[in-house]
Design a protein around this nucleic acid. Structure first.
Lengths: 191, 191
DNA sequence: CCTACCGATCGGTAGG
DNA sequence: CCTACCGATCGGTAGG
């Protein structure tokens, strides 16, 4: 019983933190802001979480886990590079629509992570990005994608796909997914 | 003579501020950080600038001015929507390569602008975005671009074009411009 | 351009 | 979960 209440409160704090970090950015959000958003005194927050940095760490690492898990599944599934890229687009949009605030924090505030979380985060990111590039590279070798430099095209594609959550409030998931899919796939094809 | 020295110092401070705001973000950069980066005591900074907020305002507004000026020229020049979009891509890449730090601050720290600068900034941005959308819309009407929703495609294209400065250090301007141009143009074309 | 300093706010703790 | 409080750091000023 006590356990359940604890979890609920902590989740409430995490959700408020995600919202505030998204709105103001991590450094500009004070624990006083967070406390009043949750409806507690500052000191009461610390019964549920260890520190402000721990909040950021939990939000970023949870999100990183979701992306890595999604990537692992895509790697293991059947399908050529085009199918896999298609699934990656879906992965990014799905996560963005399910956790819009967390994804924004993950994308924009990760550099404020304390050590050693920052180091872990960067390592995870490298894993994810290498796997993503591998798919583009394979597509180029097989001849379904066309571009000069894999690293550069990876950056460009990731930009498109990563910030699709900008549109979360305005468009339906399917509508966004369809438009992004067409755009990215065409951009990678031969003319 | 005195005038020249003053300007040089102020520009030095502005350049350092742009670098630090890029590296740490605006709220996480202290005036102490800035002072030691420039090689002065904190209080000495205030002989050259009014406030921390004034630094951010100057950086963001200068950049906004460059984009608006570029847009104005493109609107007045000859050419159809495809030519104009091509010029917009060049505009973004040119500014990103000439002022990489300022553009990062402009893109990522503008929300920390004080009033009334923030209001002006948002109004400028709306002007710019409306003009950009107008070009996409015309391309759709004329039949050179293909997409469902103008606002959504605008967001997607702007994402691609806006964050090309991520690649500033790694790739030559022409190489990046060529790849982005092909990608965006294909993404907007019929399949 | 520096020394010395200010009030405000920060993240966080003690103790109950 | 709150009251009361801490040292550190913040942006900025006075005065020379």
């Amino acid at each position: 019983m006590n356990e359940t209440i604890e979890l609920t409160r902590k989740e409430e704090i995490l959700r408020s933190a995600a919202a505030l970090f998204t709105e103001k950015g991590y450094p500009a959000t004070s624990m006083r802001n967070l406390a009043s958003h949750v409806g507690l005194e500052v000191s009461s927050i610390y019964s549920h979480i260890k520190s402000k940095e721990a909040l950021l760490t939990e939000l970023c690492m949870d999100c990183a886990g979701k992306f890595l898990q999604g990537m692992k599944e895509i790697q293991q599934e059947q399908g050529g590079p085009a199918v896999k890229l298609d699934k990656l687009i879906t992965l990014h949009i799905d996560i963005a629509y399910e956790y819009p605030a967390s994804v924004t924090v993950f994308n924009k505030e990760w550099r404020h992570l304390p050590q050693p979380a920052l180091e872990t985060f960067v390592a995870y990111r490298k894993q994810y990005e290498d796997a993503f590039k591998e798919i583009l590279q394979q597509g180029k070798q097989v001849g379904v994608f066309s571009f000069e430099d894999t690293d550069m095209m990876f950056r460009i594609v990731l930009q498109t796909v990563k910030f699709s959550y900008f549109s979360v409030r305005k468009f339906s998931k399917n509508q966004l997914a369809a438009e992004v899919r067409k755009y990215v796939m065409s951009g990678l094809s031969w003319n």
